[in-house]
Write a protein that binds this DNA or RNA. Structure first.
Lengths: 346, 346
DNA sequence: TTGAAAGCGCTAACAC
DNA sequence: GTGTTAGCGCTTTCAA
C-alpha cells in the first residue's frame, strides 16, 4: 500500500534507477522512447517520489517556502491555497512561514530558515518582497526567490516577479465613484511600509486629475491596514466642515472600519456616504451593505509565482507576469445625495 | 553554516551517535550524566536534527498533520498557529491539509496522506473528528490521532481528545441575555454536521429552562455557519408577529449576517435588538457595534491537542483536557427596550 | 544516452 | 546503559 519506490519503477521499465530519476526530474538527456516507457511504469505503479529521500540526498529538499508578514487571515489562506496548488501539481513540498519584514536581520532569518529545511527557494509576498537590501543579500546567498509586488509595469530588474497593478485598480475604483457623481472623495491610506499603499494613492490621484477634480489634502488620511485606523480616519472625515460624500479605504478592513464609523455616526451607507474597499475579502461581502471593492486573486497570483519559482529551480526561466485586480461593485456605493447641485465633469 | 550533524555532536561529547539520538528523542535509557554531556555538546554546536533524515530512516517522519474541513479563515489561521507552536517546541514538522469530512473515502484519503508523507500522526479538528466510522478505520490502520471535539464532559472513550464545552459557553451567552431582561431570544442554529451545533442548542435550551422561560419553536431557525443563513434567519425572526428582542447566532459569521439583516431592516443594534455570536473571531470586533461572543481559543486548544499527539507518539499518554469558551460582552447586547412590562425571573 | 557505486543524516535491530 | 551495523529512497558523482 505504501507508494512504490524508484527501484520498483526502474525494474518494471527495464532501466536503471538513475534513468527513472532523470525522467521524474525532467532532465533532458533521456531518449523520448525511454522516457515514455518510464512514464508508463510510473503511471501503472502509482509512483510518487519520496520527498524526504530526495531532500536528504539532493542539494535541496524539493520544497519551497512561502514567506509572509501579514496579519490578514483571509489573505494568508488564499495565498497558502495558491502555493499548495502549484506545489501539488509539481511534486514539490511547501513550507509556510511568517517573518518580520522590518527586522534588520530579515535576510539572515530567511537564510537560516532555508538552510535548516534545505529549501529549494522562496516565494516572497509583500511587504517582504519590497526590502531591496535584504533581497540583494538573499541573492548573494544564492537563494532562489520570486517576488510578488505592487507595480504598474514589469520592473524588469534582475529579480523575477509577479506584479500586481494596484494603481490601475485603485484608479478604477475612484473612477467608479467619480462617475456616480462624487467629487469630494476621502482616501484612507494604508501603511507606509507597503508599496501598494503608494500605488493605490497614485491611482486615486490619477483618477481625480483625469476627471478634473482638485486634490484636497484634508481628504487624505494616513493610517495602517487595520480596522481601527479606518474607523478613526473616517470619523475625522465626517467631522470636516465639508465632509466627503464617498470614502475609499485602502483595503477592506479599513473600509469596514469606515463603515462602522459611519454607522456609529448615524450615517446611512450608501445614501449619506459611499464606501469602497480593496481586496474582495469575504469580509467585504459580510458587511451591510456589502462593500464595493477590487478583486485581488491572491490565490492565483501566488500559484503563478510558485510555478515561476519551481521552473527557475529546474533551470527554466519564465517571464514575469502582471495581474490587475478587478472592480467589483456592491451596495456600499451609490450616487451622492443631491443636496446642492454638484458639477459633474466628463 | 549548515547545522552540525549527529556525528559531530557524538564525537564532541565522546559518545556514539546512537546515544545522541537517544538523548534527542528523550528516551529513558541514558545515564543522567551522559545526557548532560550530550546536551552540552548539542548546545555548543547549535545542533538541530535533520527532519528529512529522521523521517527517511525511522518508522515515521517526526511530522504531524493538521486536518481541517472548515471554511473559516480566522479559525484556520489560529489553529495553524497553535499547531506550529507545539511542533516548534517539540522538534516536529507540521503538514497542513484540508479534506472533505463528508467523503465516504475520508479514512482512506487520510491514510494516503499519512503514508505518502510518512506522518507520525494526525490532529483532527471538527467536524472531521466527529466521523466515528472513519475514526475507527484510522485506528485500525494504526494511525495515531488526537481529536478536538465538542462535549460538556470528557467522553472517556477509546480515543484521546481535547474537548470544548460549547454547551456551557452557549449557556453563558444566553444567561447574559436573560439577565439583561430578554425573554424572547432567537436562536440561529449552525450546520447539523457539526456536533457543536447541537451542544450550543442544548446550552440555549438549558439556560431558558433554568430561567423559567418557555421554549418557542418559531424562535429557533435552522441553518449553516454562513453569513447568508444568518441574514435570512434573522429576517425570518424580524418578520414574526412578535419578533425576538435578542438573537444568538451560533457563530460570529451567522451573527454578522443577523447584524446585517437588522441594519437592512432599519433596526438599531443593540437598542432595537441585541445580537450575540460565538467564537471571538476578529470579525466580531470589526462590526458595528462589535459583537458579544464567546472566546474560543482555537490556537490554545490545537496547541494542546498537538502536544498530546506528540506525547502519545513518544509513548507517553496524556490525559484528555477540557476547555470552556469564555463570555465576552461587547456593544451588540443591551437590555431590551421597555415597551410593555416584561416579567423578569430570578 | 545510460548505469554503478557511494553516501546524504538519521534510526532500527541487535549486540555487548 | 551503550555501541555496532545496516539501510531508509533518493541523488550525486563518475564511468561506460
Amino acid at each position: 500500500m505504501e507508494s512504490a519506490t524508484l527501484d520498483d519503477v526502474a525494474s518494471k521499465a527495464g532501466v536503471s534507477a538513475k534513468t527513472v530519476s532523470r525522467v521524474v526530474n525532467g532532465e533532458r538527456s533521456v531518449r523520448p522512447q525511454t522516457r515514455e516507457r518510464v512514464l508508463r511504469a510510473i503511471e501503472q505503479l502509482g509512483y510518487r517520489p519520496n520527498l524526504l529521500a530526495r531532500g536528504l540526498s539532493g542539494a535541496h529538499a524539493y520544497t519551497v517556502g512561502l514567506i509572509y508578514d501579514n496579519p490578514n487571515a483571509y489573505y494568508i489562506i488564499a495565498m497558502q491555497q495558491g502555493a499548495l496548488t502549484a506545489c501539488d501539481a509539481l511534486n514539490f513540498g511547501l513550507q509556510i512561514r511568517t517573518c518580520n519584514s522590518r527586522s534588520p536581520a530579515l535576510a539572515e532569518d530567511l537564510r537560516n530558515f532555508v538552510h535548516r529545511s534545505r529549501l529549494s527557494g522562496l516565494v516572497l509576498t509583500t511587504p517582504v518582497s519590497e526590502r531591496a537590501a535584504s533581497l540583494r543579500k538573499l541573492a548573494a546567498y544564492d537563494i532562489p526567490f520570486v517576488r510578488i509586488l505592487s507595480a504598474a509595469d514589469d520592473p524588469d530588474d534582475e529579480f523575477p516577479c509577479v506584479y500586481v497593478d494596484d494603481r490601475d485598480a485603485a484608479y478604477a475604483i475612484v473612477s467608479h465613484l467619480l462617475q456616480l457623481g462624487h467629487v469630494r472623495i476621502g482616501f484612507l491610506q494604508g501603511g507606509k511600509h507597503h508599496h501598494a499603499s503608494a500605488e493605490r494613492l497614485k491611482g486615486y490621484k490619477d483618477a481625480l486629475q483625469h476627471y478634473g477634480v482638485p486634490l484636497r489634502k484634508e481628504l487624505m488620511i494616513a493610517g495602517d491596514y487595520v480596522f481601527d485606523d479606518g474607523f478613526r480616519g473616517a470619523r475625522r472625515l465626517f467631522d470636516l466642515a465639508e465632509p466627503p460624500t464617498a470614502i475609499f479605504g485602502c483595503n477592506d478592513e479599513i473600509a469596514a472600519g469606515a463603515l462602522a464609523a459611519a454607522q456609529a455616526a448615524g450615517l446611512h451607507v450608501p445614501y449619506d456616504v459611499s464606501i469602497a474597499g480593496f481586496e474582495d475579502s469575504p469580509f467585504s461581502r459580510h458587511s451591510w451593505p456589502p462593500l464595493t471593492t477590487a478583486r485581488q486573486r491572491a490565490d492565483v497570483i501566488v500559484e503563478r509565482a510558485t510555478r515561476m519559482l519551481i521552473s527557475r529551480i529546474n533551470g527554466n526561466d519564465i517571464e514575469n507576469e502582471g495581474f490587475t485586480p478587478e472592480l467589483v461593485v456592491r451596495g456600499s456605493t451609490a450616487p451622492p445625495r443631491p443636496k446642492r447641485r454638484q458639477r459633474k465633469r466628463r
